[in-house]
Design a protein around this nucleic acid. Structure first.
Lengths: 245, 245
DNA sequence: TTTCTATAGTTCTATATAGAAGCATATAAG
DNA sequence: CTTATATGCTTCTATATAGAACTATAGAAA
């Protein structure tokens, strides 16, 4: 209730320093996805700032997609959806046109020594053990995407205790519930290649036919790398559309 | 100098109506790329609005990437670069690491009856004549991307009068100078396919090896379709990177 | 139960004002 | 000719204030 002093670099504008504070409140768990952020009024009293300054800070965080505001209801921490993912552009649709989450089937889950490239991506020591998975995503039993997934053992040990059959079609909610790990953002990179014999077998296509390859490094709110994933999908079912200016 | 009334739908907020006016000033050519926009002060006097409201309108247009502001210098209409294009993600680089515009070589330029799919994209009557081009883009004489380009005859007739040898490595400046047509934005869509015999010959790769295919519909400020383009490039030289949240 | 109404909270819009900070140009000083 | 200084412009930050518009809830009325 009492007024708090603004922390942070004095040379920065006040609204940026307030935004930094609220950003940290999220990354350090004091504000969780779905939570209500204190109202403009509450913040302006708590930090003894004019409402316009508070509003500017919140506007910044809304622009960053960290918060979302609802007229008359309040300001909330946005739940990260991964709709913007490149995955969205595989033509994942059932014959009747309804969009649905494709089935996710874990083919293998083992404890392995992590390859050095992936160790660097996940920022764990080379030679450490990690969880390795092979996963297939299907629509109506037709395989669309084959995935290779690596998880750091330290954070995800509990994931080994549950049955792969009990894992649903989405992994990130399981990471949250079983391991307490929240995925907040990710980097993805895309290229195409000719299908290897292994990939062709999984996707039931000809060896050498084109496949899209998407690498994803998923991270927590604080930027810690959480999951590395390489997905290969049939190129003929992939279509990415964008507007440029 | 005198105060002008705000046009537009009375029910909309003032700052949105001012933004609409300025947006139209651009689409209708009263403000051209690179031009200076009247200062906050001039606008607030001209429309009799408080400076805060004017600023909010300009902020909106900056967010849309239509304007850019420079502290102490002024506000300007942004020159559309096409850096965000998917093209950027072909590894266009010379051995010494310096980035450069790849060479553009026009292989063919003819007057053709436009295929119906492209007619629909360009919004011209089916069966109309149009300019058809085949173009190759190379780095150090190594072909990277092969392009098929269609232009509506009506706007681009003057383009037929110049020698293809005189066309430089960039087409859009030529469209502007020779035909007075400004490209402002574009839609692109990306997929991958196996190289046809023709594509393989142009790119000097094996038939059937994977190529990235990018379709682009380029438009003017008012949204009029200007150019349709299909580009095929070696998939092994393509790499797209993005961040999602 | 259902429907209306008042109320207190929220975000959103708009105004007015003041000064800081950055940039470009003209002018003065060396 | 070169360098400093002053000036007038620009955008940027911050405050204070007022009311509109929207939402949820509680309580009254039908």
């Amino acid at each position: 209730m009492n007024a708090q002093p603004l922390s942070g670099d004095q040379r920065l504008p006040i609204y940026q320093r307030l935004a930094d504070i609220l950003r940290r409140d999220v990354t350090e768990g004091r504000l969780r996805p779905g939570d209500r952020v204190p109202s403009d009024n509450e913040l302006s009293h708590a930090y003894e700032l004019s409402p316009g300054t508070v509003r500017k800070a919140l506007d910044l965080l809304v622009q960053e997609d960290l918060f979302e505001r609802f007229h008359g209801r309040g300001t909330f921490v946005r739940r990260p959806s991964f709709d913007a993912s490149l995955f969205r552009f595989f033509r994942f649709r059932t014959p009747d046109g309804t969009k649905s989450v494709p089935e996710g089937r874990i083919l293998r889950r083992t404890r392995e020594k992590v390859p050095s490239y992936i160790a660097r991506q996940l920022k764990i020591p080379e030679g450490d053990a990690a969880i390795s998975m092979s996963r297939l995503r299907l629509i109506d039993d037709v395989p669309i995407v084959a995935e290779e997934i690596w998880l750091p053992l330290q954070r995800f040990e509990a994931f080994l205790d549950i049955l792969t059959e009990d894992v649903g079609n989405l992994l990130y909610p399981v990471y949250d519930e079983v391991c307490g790990q929240l995925i907040a953002k990710a980097e993805e990179s895309l290229t195409a290649e000719a299908a290897s014999a292994e990939t062709a077998r999984l996707l039931r296509i000809e060896t050498g036919s084109p496949v899209m390859m998407i690498d994803r490094l998923a991270k927590g709110y604080d930027g810690t790398p959480m999951e590395w994933r390489r997905s290969r999908g049939r190129a003929d079912l992939f279509h990415y559309h964008t507007e440029i200016r």
